[in-house]
Design a binder for these strands. Structure first.
Lengths: 217, 217, 217, 217
DNA sequence: GATGAATGAGCGTTCATTCAT
DNA sequence: AATGAATGAACGCTCATTCAT
């Protein structure tokens, strides 16, 4: 073949990379295995990507683009806050179950092995959802739908924390195991229960007005 | 030194290991570096630990013991639920800031490179907090302090999710970056703000009675 | 060189291995040295052979194949027993002098460091000559050429013992030294003398009819 | 203990060394294991022996002394040649069965791993039996008991070759396996058969007068 | 351009030897 | 004097990267 790789071929290579990186982690992942699995030679891999690290970054970008797409799709509609939350939960639940590798790779960035990417990627990725969530929390606050005394930044943070843990709980081995321990072996087959309870949790968290307890004296 | 290593010296080695594993991840961490950093020879490392894996596990156990100790200490007192929550938040906040390596290593287990430990450790570690949280949620429910319609298992799960994300946000690079993005550069010097907002979030989440939205239809 | 190794190149590597293993024994032999001596990188060694052990076995097999070839060539002809013996002696004498490494490696198997191979290889190698020698001893017995009261199995064993010691005496350092002590410094340059005397020894051993001594009472 | 090691203690250490060296070969043998097995510390080992090599040599010397003792005992009596042969055969058969380690270690010298000792030891050890055997062969020749045309040096060599192979066949794994292949599984329990046949073989070899076959033309 | 064989730095691990106690 | 913990050089093996074909 004397041609540039097509987008489809690139896609196949990246998918193979994502699978391998998700399966074995960035360090144990093997470039030859990836080449073999995607039906190309290592030479091609190194023609398109300067190094294993560089290739890992490309895989990562594909994952994050997809995850962003999922979230952006939900946020595009002008729903009320809890409807949005529900849609996000369902979307992440579905995506994490169907494309666990993508979420596992996202999780890898948060681990030490990817130190290198931490700063840059955090900026790139988290700014989007951070901004979006803060925005609609502030709007909801303005509309009187959620508690006035909430710090939109922190609340957006807590909200995203719950979503992140949710997606990892549907995709990463350790978190999956933990999910079953916290809930029970049936959680993975009763998505509605999880959606329902998380919404219940969020709904309360967002909408209570009174403060029953005075922390700090 | 030609005497058997004292407990303190073993501690130094483990701390060096934790630092190296936290810094580079289990795969990239280098046994020679650890030996050098802790002022012993590689031989000593292999006299006390059968393999890199075995040593990693020992480091891990030290971290987890400490983390469990922190949590257990808080749970020992028979406080009301939100007091407990507050104490847990403060304890984790403090611990994650002071011994970030311990928390980073805990986080490592959740990542792909430690696949091997996922199952076993999850059982070992998460069962404790899972049981404890569920128990005091149920007790609070019985006392009428928190909403009756909450599934204690799921709510315990969401609660711990928030705590985990909190500790990682004070210890792991990526999460720290993200924390600043969500909140602002000042978060790390205003612990009270975080405690206050998270308590506010939890308080509402736990105590609302009415359900304003009907999910699912 | 970026083409697959040719058979000749593989041969060079194996020869380097045989030389190194013969020189230093299987344990002290060094894979880096072998790589260097055969002009390839260690990587190549491990591309073609799974481990040092595996490589050693390959070297061994090459030696044994050659040794078997030498013996098989002689046994192919339908000569009378002492003619065969003479041919075998000459063939082993020549081979042990010219390819001492091959014979040294054969000798290595008999030593403790190769414990692992003892059983399997013994079966594989010794069965052939054992069977062949016994067969022609029995034939010679049937033809009345050699003594009737000989146990063909034991006599075949003694015969091969003499041949083995002969080949080792021309190839292994210790045995070479011993050879010179038993005979004199000139043995290695007077092959005919050795052939002649050994044939004399065998001829008598095989052909005497009367038993002058009553062993066992 | 503030005393020099007694001869018995030295003996225990050497026996442990012989066992370990015989079991694993000189390279794989472990100094710590030897120390442990003989109930002393490695420090003591290195107090009495400069290095592993030096210790191996000491073990070797013990073995060889014992083997020489066995042979010398037999040669002390002024028996006729075949009586001597029979006594030697029985003595080696017994010794190799009972103290296989000693013989295995002797065999190790002949292997490449002990390159270092080849020259020196060969001189030291083989000279004795070589001289003795040659002497009594010449005497027997003078007495007209064995063939006149035999070269006493070579015949002594062949004689010792058969004895060496015999002792190894009763002590070294590979040779034991080979022994069973050549003869049958019962050889090890029918010592008389082996003695008888070897004597038959030697008797003929030594005593034939006429040369029935003209080798070389 | 594409291939994949070859490279070799680098890491985990062992164990003979040393020497503080 | 005896101990055995500590040392660290050295080796087997891997795999990201290169480049002759």
């Amino acid at each position: 073949m004397f041609k540039k790789l097509t987008d489809e071929e690139i896609q196949i290579i990246l998918e193979a990379g994502i699978a391998e990186f998700a399966e074995n982690g960035p360090d144990k992942a093997n470039m030859h295995t990836i080449a073999k699995k995607s039906g190309v030679s290592v030479g091609v891999l190194y023609k398109y990507y300067a190094s294993k690290d560089d290739f890992f970054e490309a895989c990562l970008r594909l994952c994050l683009a997809e995850l962003n797409r999922v979230i952006a799709e939900v946020l595009a509609c002008d729903d009320k806050i809890l409807v949005r939350a529900e849609k996000l939960i369902r979307a992440l639940q579905k995506s994490a179950k169907e494309h666990s590798g993508y979420h596992v790779l996202y999780h890898e960035i948060t681990a030490g092995s990817c130190k290198k990417y931490a700063r840059a990627f955090a900026k790139e990725i988290e700014s989007i959802s951070s901004g979006a969530y803060r925005a609609f929390l502030m709007q909801a606050q303005a509309e009187g739908v959620i508690r006035k005394d909430a710090d939109p930044r922190l609340f957006a943070f807590f909200f995203d924390n719950l979503l992140m843990m949710l997606q990892f709980s549907y995709s990463c081995d350790y978190y999956k195991e933990r999910f079953q321990i916290y809930c029970d072996d049936g959680v993975f087959s009763d998505d509605e229960r999880v959606v329902g309870e998380l919404l219940k949790f969020l709904e309360s968290a967002f909408t209570v007005e009174r403060s029953q307890i005075s922390h700090r004296g």
